[in-house]
Design a protein around this nucleic acid. Structure first.
Length: 300
DNA sequence: AACATTTGACCCCC
DNA sequence: GGGGGTCAAATGTT
């Protein structure tokens, strides 16, 4: 029991190994490509799609691993409760939007009937020295000055809260001025299907039989995901905003989305755009100590 | 016109 | 009663 790898750990190891192998394949392709002379058309038509597919698989491994981390209360205790696509889709029917009276809080009938999230445990938390895209489309629904904070806290919900009942929310709190430090706290899990780029959602190939937890967009449409510094916009053309009092500075980000871009997404985008932008700073950290399992305990 | 953000007010829980 | 989270009308942007 003690030194025996838990199921969760094993699953993560498998994912990482898978990712490593796929990355090796990708490397071989790239090396081979550089050592041979192909026409541009050949490269475009054969190598790139394959390379892209491999890169996606690498990303998928990373995302699965991270999600495994996110969905286990304690990685070491062997409790494995992955949130599969089927699992989440089964709760799509306004799962967390209905209060005890059965009133969907997203409806107009639910005026002033609110359920606070503040007593729910955060799903996970991330600190970063900058505000970045995390691949999801968020909509800001409020901001507030809190007692123990020097800066405004911004509240975001998934843009598909009402059309798909996605319960995911996040709070962005600037915690430090110099150097700038932001804490993004995520609540709930996405059960929406189109928050990420629709093209590759829930790709079935996945090189594995296992449940696909999350599929990251690796095909950012240029018109939607433009490079801006080291970040991307995941929302409609929005003004580069400045959060009043909170981060009116360096974050040239759409206000709805100055969220945190997971490293793997950023890496891949750098790859895709063949533009080596600056990587996230080393001050970025993910805190998994606040992971509370996979339950959609939003309204519970 | 459609959609996103801002912001004051409301409401729940501690 | 106060703090925090959310709503929704007003406003801004494209």
């Amino acid at each position: 029991m003690e030194n025996q790898p838990s199921n969760g750990r094993k699953a993560m190891e498998e994912e990482l190994n898978k990712g490593r192998d796929t990355a090796n394949q990708l490397l071989q392709i790239l090396v081979h490509k550089s050592n041979t002379r192909h026409s541009d058309a050949e490269v475009e038509g054969l190598v790139l799609p394959f390379a892209e597919d491999l890169a996606r698989k690498v990303l998928r491994s990373f995302s699965n691993t991270l999600l495994l981390l996110n969905t286990h209360t304690d990685v070491s205790d062997g409790v494995v409760m992955p949130v599969t696509v089927n699992d989440v889709s089964s709760s799509l029917k306004c799962p967390n939007l209905e209060d005890k009276d059965g009133v969907c809080k997203g409806s107009i009938n639910a005026k002033r009937r609110r359920v606070s999230h503040k007593r729910n445990a955060p799903t996970w938390e991330k600190n970063s020295s900058h505000l970045m895209e995390d691949g999801y489309i968020w909509r800001k629904y409020g901001q507030k000055m809190t007692i123990n904070a020097k800066y405004l806290r911004s509240y975001y919900r998934c843009t598909h809260k009402y059309d798909q009942g996605c319960p995911a929310t996040k709070q962005v709190q600037r915690v430090q001025e110099n150097p700038p430090l932001y804490r993004t706290t995520y609540y709930g899990h996405h059960n929406c299907k189109i928050s990420l780029s629709p093209e590759i959602m829930l790709e079935p190939d996945s090189s594995s039989d296992s449940s696909m937890f999350l599929s990251f967009s690796t095909t950012f449409p240029e018109e939607k995901y433009q490079f801006s510094s080291s970040v991307f916009s995941s929302t409609k053309q929005e003004p580069m905003e400045v959060i009043p009092d909170e981060c009116g500075i360096h974050n040239q980000l759409p206000s709805s989305d100055y969220n945190l871009l997971s490293d793997y997404e950023l890496d891949f985008n750098c790859l895709r755009h063949d533009t080596m932008q600056s990587m996230p700073s080393s001050t970025e950290s993910v805190q998994f100590d606040k992971v509370y399992g996979s339950g959609m305990d939003f309204d519970g």
